[in-house]
Simulated scan of single mutants.
Amino acid sequence: MRVPVSQVPAHPVPVPVPLRPVLARWGAPPDAAELPAAWVNAAGGTTFRLHGPRGAVFCKWAPAGVGLDLAAEAERAAWAAAFVPVPRVLEQGGDASGSWLVTRALPGASAVAPQWVARPEVAVPALGRALRWWHDAVPVAGCPFDWSVPHRLRRAVGDTGGLLDPPAVDRLVVCHGDACSPNTLLADGSGEPVGFVDLSAVGVADRWADLAVATMSLGWNYGDDDGRDWEGTFLRAYGTAPDPVRTAYYRALWDVGP
């Protein structure tokens, strides 16, 4: 099973040379060779948080060839912003060495920030409510993006032999596309959901494409050794019963490429 290995590094990380003028436009020292990173992805991407004269922003960097499509994320974020709180796109570009995406910081903190990892009894039901909010608020009608099974199978990088006969669609929604816990923001204090990030795979699909991954990520981020049924807690907060068949299918599909 594929697991997330993104992390917040303990020390400043190198700033790619092509990214230095971009970061300088948003408040970084123009000659900064290293900066603290908000997130480092195992695929090779790095996210920097900057506090400049124009406020707090995040800048994502994706080296060429790592498979992180920041142009797709910018397009989807701009579309979804009409319906739910997502990062406002400030700049997107690229060259032969890679691409970048600069967005305005949103209020709140990731659901895997230390204060929420320590309080999963608050974070997990909030995540369930957040995903239901997204699915109810973002309309299928007029959505220009596809995340259906046929679309994903065409892009898969693993063995798809057991995935050619998907279960019937339960409810068609606009899926977030990476509904793992870190990609929902919770309000300081109350823990209520306040926003969504990492939107490069937004598209129309069965809601279980999101639900299967969202529940799978709970064990990665909050642990599953204390006897608590975090998956059940999440699904009750979302407002649906477990569906083992669709859950198993969409987790297997995730494993061959989100």
Rank of each mutant, 00 (worst) to 15 (best):
S6F: 14
L101P: 00
A187T: 08
P87N: 06
A64C: 04
P9Y: 05
Y222A: 05
T160K: 09
D178L: 04
E121P: 01
T240Y: 04
E231K: 03
L253C: 08
C143P: 04
R171D: 14
P29T: 10
F48Q: 00
D226G: 09
P193W: 07
P29M: 10
G195F: 06
P9N: 13
D170Y: 07
D95K: 07
G158A: 11
G162F: 08
V117S: 05
A113G: 08
P9F: 03
G239E: 02
H151T: 15
L186N: 06
A42C: 13
G189D: 11
P244H: 10
P244R: 04
Y249V: 10
P16L: 11
E75S: 14
E91S: 08
W220D: 15
A137G: 07
L186C: 10
D136G: 13
F145A: 02
G191N: 00
S200Y: 15
A80S: 11
V40N: 05
M216T: 08
V173P: 00
D159P: 06
L164W: 02
A81K: 08
D165M: 04
A82S: 11
A248Q: 14
N221D: 13
L19Q: 02
A248R: 06
P36Q: 08
D146R: 11
A123G: 12
S190D: 13
R246A: 13
T46L: 09
L253E: 10
V173Y: 00
L70A: 07
C175N: 05
D229C: 13
A77D: 13
D170A: 15
D255E: 12
V138A: 15
V138Q: 08
Q7C: 02
F83G: 10
H135Y: 01
G27P: 02
R2L: 09
V124H: 01
L70K: 02
P182F: 03
G219D: 02
S110L: 03
V13L: 14
V124T: 07
L19P: 00
P63F: 06
T103Y: 01
L211C: 03
V122K: 01
